[in-house]
């Protein structure tokens, strides 16, 4: 089963996504961490998310890029956080934007195939005007296409607004 959770900054999407994992009944819980930690803010962000997950029994696998090369415990419940970071790391990273869409999507498909449940967290970045430089616009386009592709494959798609899930696909969890 694949599920997609989106929302704006500070919307409560991570907490909701973790709830989907804990409600799945699957014992083995894996957190797929995509953020490259490089400054104080990202350290604090990681710490905040660690505390939120504390006691929920997650093991953490770092995958800032090359998700397709990762082997997951069969049948686990996996939380990928998040698609926008992973896509940015692929898009602006060594391998570059050529094929970034395909690499990320192949990674999501492979992870979903290995896991009993894969919950993908992504970001709503598309409602704030389009006055950005060409690189950012190209990244936004790639992420938007990935969001759509994952949503098309997902059994449940949720947008979290002020901590409240809006079910776009799959009904109320």
């Amino acid at each position: 089963m694949l599920m997609l959770v989106s929302g704006g900054a500070g919307s409560g999407k991570s907490e909701f996504a973790e709830g989907l994992i804990t409600a799945s009944g699957l014992d083995r819980r894996v957190y797929l961490a995509t953020m490259r930690v490089w400054d104080g803010e990202s350290v604090r962000r990681v710490e905040r998310h660690r505390q939120m997950r504390a006691g929920k029994g997650f093991e953490t696998l770092e995958c800032p890029d090359n998700l397709a090369g990762l082997t997951l415990p069969a049948g686990c419940a996996a939380l990928l956080e998040d698609l926008s970071n992973l896509t940015a790391n692929e898009f602006f990273g060594e391998q570059g934007r050529q094929g970034a869409y395909e690499r990320v999507l192949a990674g999501v498909e492979r992870a979903a195939w290995q896991a009993g449940l894969l919950v993908v967290v992504t970001n709503e970045l598309f409602s704030d005007g389009m006055d950005y430089d060409p690189d950012t616009l190209a990244y936004l386009d790639t992420l938007a296409r990935l969001n759509r592709a994952v949503a098309a494959r997902a059994g449940g798609v949720y947008e979290v607004v002020c901590g409240i899930p809006v079910a776009w696909k799959g009904g109320r969890p």
Partner: peptide
């Protein structure tokens, strides 16, 4: 205010997060 590209400016980033 949280549904756009994450701002480069840390204070703006923090404000969106806080409002959320």
């Amino acid at each position: 205010v949280g549904c756009g590209v994450v701002p480069v400016d840390p204070a703006q980033r923090a404000r969106r997060e806080q409002v959320g």
